[in-house]
Amino acid sequence: MLKIENLKVSYGGIEAVKGISFSVEQGQIVTLIGANGAGKSTTLRTVVGLVKAASGSIVYEGEELTGLPTDQIVRRGITLVPEGRRVFPDLTVLENLKIGAYTRKDDLSQDIEWVYSLFPRLKERHWQPAGTLSGGEQQMLAVGRALMSRPKLLMMDEPSLGLAPLIVQDIFSIIREINRQGVTILLIEQNANMALRIAEVGHVLETGRITLSGSGAELLSNDAVRAAYLGKSK
């Protein structure tokens, strides 16, 4: 579905992503883990066109994405839940959901109900300006907003950041649920343990390079990964 090949991205001369290759198959949950500054966010932002690739290719359903503007990429069925929520603070919860469906022209009521069923909290607060929601509620809204575009590929940049452990559980089970409903997922997580548990495939990113790839279970039991990202001694 998505095939990234030898992707390089730099910010003003500094290479943040130094030639990575991986692919995401239809229906999978794929996760990227890695330390701060490894280039995870940069990779996703490049896929969706917010950052320009220096070289390499990103092919989605047979079509090259590099060079396309973000709004065109989003129209092809890819969406990104950005790092740090980024809900529109002065739009209401409902308006935020509606703007998530900006590219669509059909009836939204079913999708809104679907998002409300995933996040009942949002339904209670649908009239509230999003800026007045708690951090966790904003994160739910950011995910719900992304779902409103009916993405085929949903990319999430640290959706569990700053959430209480119980809510983190919820978010992960919702990610699974969304995936069961046919949405392919590319996930970045600091919470490597949780991410690898739900992911079919994981890639470890270190300073702009993929150093290790494998199934979620393999990586979970890999000694180096356990030491570096799961906080377990060898």
Binding site: V48, G49, L50, P69, T70, D71, V74, R75, T79, L80, P82, R86, F88, P89, D90, L91, E95, K98, I99, G100, Y102, T103, R145, S149
Partner: peptide, 24 residues
């Protein structure tokens, strides 16, 4: 209107507006 919604979104955050599929 949708155009108005796009204007309100873009006035807050270009990047996120683009992620919604808005042509800023």
């Amino acid at each position: 209107t949708k155009t108005g919604m796009a204007m309100r979104a873009a006035s807050k955050d270009f990047e996120t507006a683009r992620l919604m599929g808005i042509n800023v």
